[in-house]
Design a protein around this nucleic acid. Structure first.
Length: 878
RNA sequence: GGGUCGGUGGCGGAAUUGGUAUACGCGUAUGGUUUAGGACCAUAUCCCGCAAGGGUUGGGGGUUCAAGUCCCUUCCGACCCACCA
């Protein structure tokens, strides 16, 4: 039968040739500014409520030089959603930029002798070209590049605002230091004791540097239960854990026979009566004072030295508890015997006060006490998994004796105990956060210069706003020497103090690139704005971001910082909202064909250029959509590429079976629509059901970012269409419209060639807009009327400007429905029921009982109960 | 140790949210087609069984007319965080 159809064909079609099609349309789209985002027009439409905006944001990539298949994977789904939204009548804002400052540029430059700036700009060019083959609807005329003064000027401006509000401050602190990259690292960028960039072991070093007081926003950054934002649960809980809010007390201690006091932190004050000894982190500054001149001094300081020489990693890998006795004791403010003071490797300088009260409750404390024979106190109950000890009053009496505690009671007791401690003046309520102030300055070259001036007379003086930007000089010796490279450029460094006009120097440090990426989505609104970082009007019109796509690795780093900046902007009155993105979607990873992460050394890297060369962009996009859910991680499978390629080819070849062709503008007037489209009127209920249910499925799935199932639905429908002898124009039109967001090039070609064929014209430029418009009235495409409004060139009409097909629920009901019949819950047969009888239980039952397969199972049995789910299932219980 | 998400054919993965488990694709098999080919087309493809039928969503138990889906229990895996007092 199929051969017959083929031999009958009237339309001669060319072979599907993705390369030719794709390069052609890329050029046409560009010439016609198809993806130009006309902000003024959009703002107009939004303000006059003509259209709604939709802001799609994808984490801006680092210009490493190569567009990886991972970039494709992460950008294809956002592009599909954006195209879909556009076809649904939204004004879609889908901008793009490059996170262009940062260490790799500098390291590559050192290695190859190219200047970081040249290296970066070259990479941006290469990647932009590669990105353009992807066929996204990104408007490339609005690209934001963070290493340009027009961008980082506003970094500096924001920094000055933060300084003004006391959020940026300078301090000397023990910090994570990467000995290879020669710079400090934020806590968020130490992974298992290693530098997130180069993987070398991080050491602790005392460095004077700039911090942002993100801890001031700790409370506001916590995700509360009533937060309605559509962010993954995993992100919310991970951020809350990272912020690590713990309520407890700081308890004051006096050292016996010394004029010295210190504080310890406890999150479980109810256990204080069982605390038996004190442990101090080796780095704690009090240690030296404690042991000075004592017989223990030598041994203690040797321990301190040994610990300080350990890398973070070595320390984390040691599970063995080690410590040394200081020879000192502390008074127990709870009135129990004096507590010996020890140093121990498990006490962390960064947590609480760096000083722990240890008890006989905690397994780790007991382990340490047993090792060094430190006596622990008697308690009424020992801590077992999750059960707190009953608190003592210290004199043998029991403070609370309410039996085994439930979670609620523990919290009640905690509050009472804290009140009691505060009343006695033993300590103070204290909330400890795991989140630390963000170390923001880097001792490297390729970043935003800190807009500060150091004057011997006036101290630290901010660069006046009107002198921004402080430009990054090109001529610098940027080989790492443990010192900020900018200091090597004397001419740049020396400056007159804005206050006293005396001699002063610039701050030679640069900002962490995570500063740049904390607010770029505001700059996207108007990257060339010379007057301000972003305008209130643009924010009102286009923000917040509707959906933010990105990787899971930014859960506690970047996305937290970005939320922090937004809250800061809110406090400055610059933005009206508290959160910048309504929805967050995280993508997975495309692994190499061998199931491992792609890496050059393993030789399992899939190069998008090669794939495109073989299968074309559309097939690559389609495969990336189809291979797995967006948030999954799984291997690339080249043989599966053939599957989607075949699918596209079959869609292409289906043209042959589309009926309704063969008229030209001349004969258009002579015939009416019915004659022109005889087959579009012959869609039977089944055809309509298949078509409308596919439209419904694809529409809902794209909205859910479930593109793998959307593609599956299209494939299924194609299977159905291929089994028909004749495919109507309406079906074909909807098929390519639904496919358009996934395969933008091929569907454009089909749309154009269908129009051309139907109009009997050989090229688009021969046609006037009147021809196209008149044609649209005859039902080929739904709304060509709105098109001249959208693009400058009236002669070009793109499929990507068409309205998305709508489904009609009336076609989702078949006139005959199959109902599953079960006996005792087991499938025994299928019956076909006319839809008007569906609601009549007795009728459906009657039909089922007559069914041969079913009646066999009912014979001689007594029917106890009948369950009928209309239109779905009928179950006899016997 | 904590958190999050999972466990369904040979593989990637579906399942209208409690209603025909294995959609869609890959792979495989057989046949066809092409000068040859990675290609293309047709048919088949969860397991047992000639069939009638029976079994199957990591294991065990439960709720229900009905469980991949809900509850209990147990095992396994992935990712992130972690000597956090």
């Amino acid at each position: 039968m199929q051969k017959q159809v083929k031999s009958e064909r009237k339309l001669k079609i060319d072979r599907y040739d993705p390369q030719a099609i794709e390069s052609k349309w890329r050029k046409v789209w560009k010439e016609n500014n198809l993806y130009k985002f006309d902000k003024d027009k959009v703002e107009n439409e939004i303000e006059s409520k003509k259209k709604e905006k939709f802001y799609t944001l994808v984490e801006l990539p680092y210009p490493s030089g190569d567009l990886h298949i991972g970039h494709w994977f992460s950008f294809v789904a956002p592009d599909i959603l954006s195209r879909f939204k556009k076809m649904n009548g939204f004004d879609v804002f889908f901008p793009m930029g490059f996170d262009a400052f940062g260490l790799p540029a500098e390291n590559a430059a050192i290695k190859r002798g190219i200047h970081p700036q040249d290296w970066t700009i070259k990479n941006i060019e290469t990647m932009t070209n590669q990105f353009q083959t992807m066929g996204t609807m990104i408007d490339w005329s609005r690209v934001t590049i963070t290493c340009l003064p027009e961008y980082y000027k506003w970094n500096q401006w924001i920094f000055l605002k933060m300084y003004e509000k006391g959020l940026a401050f300078r301090s000397k602190m023990l910090s994570n230091w990467c000995p290879v990259d020669q710079t400090v690292l934020a806590n968020e960028h130490v992974e298992n004791g290693r530098c997130w960039r180069c993987g070398s072991e991080v050491v602790q070093k005392e460095v004077e540097q700039w911090f942002l007081k993100i801890t001031d926003y700790a409370e506001k950054l916590l995700w509360k239960d009533d937060n309605k934002l559509d962010w993954p649960n995993s992100v919310k809980t991970a951020q809350n854990e990272w912020i690590g809010k713990k309520e407890g007390v700081k308890i004051k201690h006096k050292v016996v026979d010394m004029d010295l006091e210190f504080e310890s932190f406890s999150a479980y004050p109810s256990w204080s009566w069982a605390d038996s000894y004190i442990v101090i982190a080796p780095e704690h500054p009090i240690v030296e004072k404690l042991v000075k001149g004592t017989s223990e001094e030598k041994e203690v300081m040797a321990f301190v030295k040994e610990m300080s020489e350990q890398t973070e990693l070595e320390r984390k890998e040691t599970t063995e508890k080690r410590g040394v006795f200081t020879g000192r004791f502390a008074k127990d403010p709870f009135g129990r015997p004096d507590m010996p003071i020890w140093l121990a490797n498990f006490a962390l300088i960064n947590f609480g006060t760096g000083i722990i009260r240890c008890s006989g409750h905690d397994e780790r404390d007991i382990e340490f006490a047993n090792k060094y024979h430190i006596p622990t106190r008697e308690v009424v109950e020992k801590r077992k998994s999750g059960t707190p000890a009953t608190p003592h009053d210290g004199k043998g009496g029991i403070l609370h004796d309410s039996g085994p505690f439930t979670g609620r009671e523990v919290n009640e007791v905690r509050e009472e105990v804290i009140d009691w401690i505060e009343k006695k003046g033993i300590g103070k309520r204290f909330i400890n956060y795991h989140l630390h102030d963000w170390s923001i300055s880097r001792q490297r070259y390729w970043g935003t210069p800190v807009p500060m001036i150091h004057c011997k007379k006036c101290g630290i003086v901010p660069v006046p706003e009107d002198q921004l930007p402080v430009t990054l000089p090109y001529e610098v010796d940027f080989t790492p020497k443990g010192k900020a490279p900018l200091a090597s450029n004397e001419e740049w460094l020396s400056v007159t103090c804005p206050k006293c006009h005396g001699k002063a120097t610039r701050d030679p440090e640069t900002l962490d690139t995570f500063f740049d990426s904390s607010w770029y989505y505001y700059r996207y609104l108007d990257p060339k704005n010379e007057k301000e970082a972003f305008s209130k009007k643009d924010v009102d019109d286009l923000m917040p971001v509707n959906i933010y796509f990105g990787g899971g690795e930014h859960t506690v780093g970047h996305t937290l910082y970005a939320r922090f900046f937004t809250k800061f902007f809110h406090d400055l009155g610059l933005v009206p909202f508290h959160e910048f993105a309504i929805k967050r979607i995280q993508h997975g990873v495309v692994l190499g064909p061998d199931g491992n992460r792609m890496s050059k050394s393993k030789g399992n890297v899939i190069n998008p250029d090669d794939v495109v060369k073989e299968f074309g962009t559309d097939a690559t996009r389609l495969y990336l959509s189809f291979m797995m859910p967006y948030n999954s991680t799984g291997p690339w499978d080249t043989s599966a590429m053939y599957g989607v390629y075949r699918f596209l080819k079959r869609v292409w070849e289906l043209q042959e079976r589309v009926k309704g062709e063969g008229f030209s503008p001349k004969n258009r007037e002579e015939k009416d629509a019915k004659e022109l489209y005889p087959f579009s009127l012959t869609l039977n209920p089944n055809d309509l059901y298949e078509m409308h249910s596919t439209i419904k499925k694809v529409t809902e799935d794209i909205e859910k970012i479930s593109n793998n199932t959307a593609v599956a639905a299209l494939m299924k429908w194609l299977n159905y269409l291929e089994a028909k002898e004749i495919v109507s124009i309406e079906e074909y039109k909807n098929l390519i419209l639904l496919l358009a967001p996934f395969a933008p090039y091929m569907t454009e070609e089909l749309c154009q060639s269908v129009i051309l064929n139907r109009l009997g014209s050989s090229s688009l430029s021969d046609l006037g807009i009147e021809d196209l418009r008149a044609h649209s009235l005859e039902g080929l495409f739904q709304d060509l009327n709105r098109i001249p409004d959208q693009v400058g060139n009236d002669n070009f009409i793109s499929i990507h400007q068409q309205l998305w097909p709508e489904f009609d629920t009336k076609y989702l009901v078949k006139d005959e429905v199959e109902i599953v019949v079960q006996v005792n819950g087991k499938l025994r047969g299928n019956i076909t029921v006319k839809s008007e009888q569906l609601k009549v239980n007795s009728k459906v039952e009657e039909i089922a009982k007559k069914d041969e397969k079913v009646s066999k199972w009912l014979e001689g049995k007594e029917i106890k109960k009948v369950i009928y789910v209309p239109g779905k299932i009928l179950n006899f219980v016997v």
